[in-house]
Write a protein that binds this DNA or RNA. Structure first.
Lengths: 203, 203
DNA sequence: GCTATTTTTAAATGTTTGTTTAAATTATCT
DNA sequence: AGATAATTTAAACAAACATTTAAAAATAGC
């Protein structure tokens, strides 16, 4: 009946695993990678989490939440449509700046083996029905915005800037720029996305 | 001094490897996966290609060419700017429709281990200097198009629609649609991207 | 048709993989 | 302080891994 004790060990493993999984993906990560990153015995991974798979699923859930929850909250905020668009884009940009492997990780894991992630992915269905969607419909009704479905708007707010970051290495190779120059480029492109969306939506 | 002979075996392995690598990525693919897909002995992979890594690099090069070459050719075609934009977008759409794993594969492999791919990636530098870039500059000089760098235009033509396909599984989960409905959605979104780009570029 | 070369095979190589074991250590509670 | 439970450890596990070997089979040239 010991349960309080070492929160630290379990947490250290989880943090290490998160770091390694984010960088190398599930297939590219070994139990020893995680143990080494956490500076702990290999057996502890299976002591605290029953398997590499279970540990991964826990971490994936956290990272999927990180990937979506804040955006979802913004979609449901009580602010006007245009401000919401700006805020969603700015937040997406901030998120991928802070966690540069997150998009590639989520995209790749979902693409490679969606089945095992289905329980977690169900959480995403909230995205379909948000206040942003209602506001969009209203604006369309008012004639301010051209007819368009929310499923077309969301990738504009989140996906376009994500793509820029996902292709970071390729961009740096193609245009022969360094990290700092890329950062400035991404920032500039983000503002262009904003203007482009407004330009397209408002007739 | 036999060299003519069995082109078929080497080719069969390469095709099998291409298929498996595309689906599972380098880390997720085993030599046995490839041998099984090709229905050949495991040793043949190392007989024809010296290692899994070397086989992968050969295939990666092919797939990177598939990913970029046609787009590059379009960029250098002798047609007007606006037609070129349409054609580039339509081609990107056709490419990812035909090879649905290609974007995820390229993005992920480049992201995960760019160093080993550098020799191949150098080929990408052609993208920086194309006739499309010159045409863009001219249009800007003429005052038809707002000031913008080619590095901002290319993702609009290629990346945005790619992102839609890369997130296919997630989209289907979020909006609870099937393959056919997704296809229609992607087609619609592609046309919106075209209009959005024109709407943004031409002042 | 025989020899030399290339291709294919089954088997084995030594590592690395995820996971387990059982003993040692540490912490907890009375 | 001593008994009990939780944690950590080193070692081992079998399975899967990429790769190699050496012999068998197929093919080539003379």
């Amino acid at each position: 009946m010991k349960c309080i004790s070492n929160k630290s060990s379990e947490e250290r493993i989880k943090e290490a695993a998160r770091k390694v999984f984010l960088k190398k993906g599930f297939d590219g990560t070994t139990s020893r990678d995680i143990a080494e990153e956490a500076d702990m015995n290999i057996a502890l991974t299976n002591y605290y989490f029953r398997s590499k798979e279970k540990l991964f699923l826990e971490i994936f859930k956290d990272l999927l939440t990180l990937y979506f929850q804040n955006t979802l909250d913004i979609f449901n905020k009580d602010i006007d449509f245009k401000s919401k668009i700006f805020e969603a884009i700015d937040h997406t940009y901030a998120m991928v700046s802070e966690e540069p492997d997150l998009c590639n990780f989520i995209m790749n894991e979902v693409h490679r083996a969606p089945e095992r992630l289905i329980p977690d992915l169900n959480f995403l269905r909230q995205v379909k029905h948000t206040q942003l969607g209602q506001q969009l419909e209203e604006e369309i009704k008012k004639g301010n915005i051209r007819p368009i479905g929310i499923e077309n708007v969301i990738p504009m707010l989140c996906g376009y800037i994500q793509f820029i970051f996902m292709g970071k290495n390729m961009h740096m190779k193609i245009f022969e720029v360094d990290e700092e120059q890329f950062k400035q480029y991404a920032l500039d492109h983000k503002e262009r996305i904003k203007e482009m969306i407004l330009c397209y939506l408002y007739i």
